[in-house]
Amino acid sequence: MSIVMANDLCKHYGSSENPVKALSHAQFSMAKGERVALVGRSGSGKTTMLNLLAGLDRPTSGVLRVAGKDLPTLSSRALAQYRCRDIGVVFQSFQLLPNRSALANVEVPLMLQGMDATTRRQRALAALDRVGLSERAAHQPAQMSGGEQQRVAVARAVVHRPSVILADEPTGNLDSQSAEAVMALILEVVKEVSAALLLITHDHALARVAATRLVTMSDGCVKPAQRYHVT
């Protein structure tokens, strides 16, 4: 059963007379727990696809169902709830709240869900512990390395146990050693929470390591999938 299903998905920017077609009749789906790598050159529509799946943007036309929710029809309020309950996102530039501790950053999705302070603190500490940063819980992002910040971002993406995790170039800002460690961590925790993973990257080698299926995007269209052996 598909956890993500995009059918005839279009996203146009600019004026109706002269639109920029970021996505053009894209077909895409993901099974529950599946790991998919979305590759393509810059401007191919990868980030647009991620924004639509993350509920940060709305498609111009087409069908987009994620975790049983028909995203184009959701209200702004329901879409915000979808973002904090059903998905977890790991951004390339970490996107941590600068004046908050690592622990507070990890707590944010749980806080947005309205969870009580004690429970969310326990869960956030557990998530930080899982990414090996429990001793840095009180530290602010500026006091941590890039690799550590991305590990905090991974903890934040999985702490609420979402059904889909979206990772947008998660190792793009890290050195090769940190990148390997972070990617390995993402794969481990994704497996633990049984979430589907959509990895956006232009690094085919990384895609081959992380994903069971490769989807290529070009000019806003999704090319036929290439399946890897599960490792």
């Binding site: 993350a54 940060l56 702004s76 309020r77 915000a80 709830q81 979808y82 973002r83 904090c84 309950r85 996102v89 996107q95 941590l96 709240l97 600068p98 004046n99 944010v108 999705p109 947005l112 869900q113 934040r156």
Partner: peptide, 14 residues
């Protein structure tokens, strides 16, 4: 701006 963007991306209501 970036901070508010992150909060909203993570699910904060307007």
């Amino acid at each position: 701006v970036r901070e508010f963007g992150v909060l909203k991306a993570l699910g904060a209501q307007d």
